[in-house]
Simulated assay, not measured.
Amino acid sequence: MKPFSTETIRRSLRVESDLAGGRLDRVLAQLLPEFSRGRLQQWIEAGQVLVDDRPCRVRDKVWGGESIRIEAELAVVDEHRPQAIALDLVYEDEHLLVIDKPAGLVVHPAAGNPDGTLLNALLHHAPELATLPRAGIVHRLDKDTTGLMVVARTLQAHCALVEQLQRRIVHREYRALVLGTLVAGGRVEAPIGRHPTQRVKMAVVGNGREAITHYRVLESYPGHTLLAVELETGRTHQIRVHMTHIHHPLVGDTTYGARPRPPRGCHPELAAALQSFPRQALHAIRLGLIHPATGAEMQWEVPMAPDLDALLELFRREVADGADRA
């Protein structure tokens, strides 16, 4: 038998109007992404989820404005094995871990990646994380997105960080290299949901969840722009979907239709680098939050990922060479 421990999970939530008409289990899965839908359904059926102080059924709908209270026992089974995978730790104390994630590292185990993930690495580095939902992971980066992630080390820190994310007070800033020339920053407000026909993708859809992205121009290159991007919400693939939506997809993001477009007449080294860049050009460069134990405002910044930094240097060289020729 696999060992397990139990923790009492307490949450108080309010259903926002953008979730009106949804089934209770599906709404909870969106509000509490750190728990599986199956687990949430078990809690509902066991009467451990109260809507306006009344027990409900899994299929009951909510209409916005309801108060949801959860008090449930979480049995955490040791189902994922610790693995000695190197972690680039930016910060560590008894409450938090902050990690600079490399490209190619999957965050959660899944059917196509049962191990070799960040979760497996965390369990090796800090075995106590086995008692926390998803080993303390409260948000995620895509497999090929690099940069900063925070991980909770205690249940109290986990609850506090999830609440900060829900209240949109966690500051997340990215660097994104996109196709096309933008002359000014802007704001994208467009709801995101599952793509209607391609289930592995997300898309801007009318019945999607609210999603807001802010961006500003940092550097302009021939046919490309380097952006600073900040998330107000945190939907799956949000930056990738929103940049594609405004017709400026990320360099290397073949999932969302970006094909290499070397500038006409550019240096062959730049053309080759663009043709072979293996991932979406997206890096989580800065992270800010309120420390869950001390209440102090904390912020971290990491250097640009080496592969993206090398590509940007080729673009800067191209700009400098063009100025010399002018």
Rank of each mutant, 00 (worst) to 15 (best):
G104S: 01
L182C: 06
R140T: 07
P109T: 08
R57T: 06
P303H: 05
V204C: 00
V49F: 07
P3F: 04
A203G: 01
G112S: 06
V98T: 07
Q280P: 10
C159P: 00
S276K: 10
V217I: 09
V162L: 14
L311W: 02
L96D: 06
I70L: 15
R14T: 15
V106R: 01
A203Q: 00
E313T: 15
P133W: 07
P109D: 07
A160T: 09
H124Y: 15
H237N: 08
H245G: 00
D25V: 11
A20F: 06
E163K: 12
L289E: 02
I85E: 03
M149K: 06
P196W: 06
Q275R: 15
Y215T: 11
V151R: 00
A110C: 14
E94I: 02
T213E: 03
K143S: 01
S220F: 02
W43Q: 01
T154D: 06
V217A: 03
I44N: 02
L226Y: 05
H171G: 06
I192E: 00
R316M: 10
V98M: 05
H267R: 14
R259E: 12
G206S: 07
R175Q: 12
G22Q: 15
K201T: 00
T6R: 15
G252Q: 03
V217W: 08
T225C: 08
V241D: 00
G65K: 07
R240Y: 08
F277A: 02
R140L: 06
G21S: 11
V205Y: 00
G252E: 01
G265C: 14
S276A: 15
V138Y: 08
Q275G: 10
E92Q: 14
G180H: 09
R216Q: 14
L28A: 08
A135I: 03
D25W: 08
H139N: 09
E297P: 11
T8A: 12
E92H: 09
D307W: 09
V76Y: 01
W43F: 05
G322C: 05
T131C: 14
N207D: 15
R11D: 10
P114Q: 12
G136Y: 05
C266E: 04
Q280S: 04
H139F: 09
A46M: 07
D115T: 10
V62L: 12
P82L: 10
E92C: 12
Y174N: 04
D142T: 03
K2C: 08
G21R: 13
Q164H: 03
R286N: 04
K2M: 10
V49S: 04
F35V: 05
H108W: 06
L308C: 10
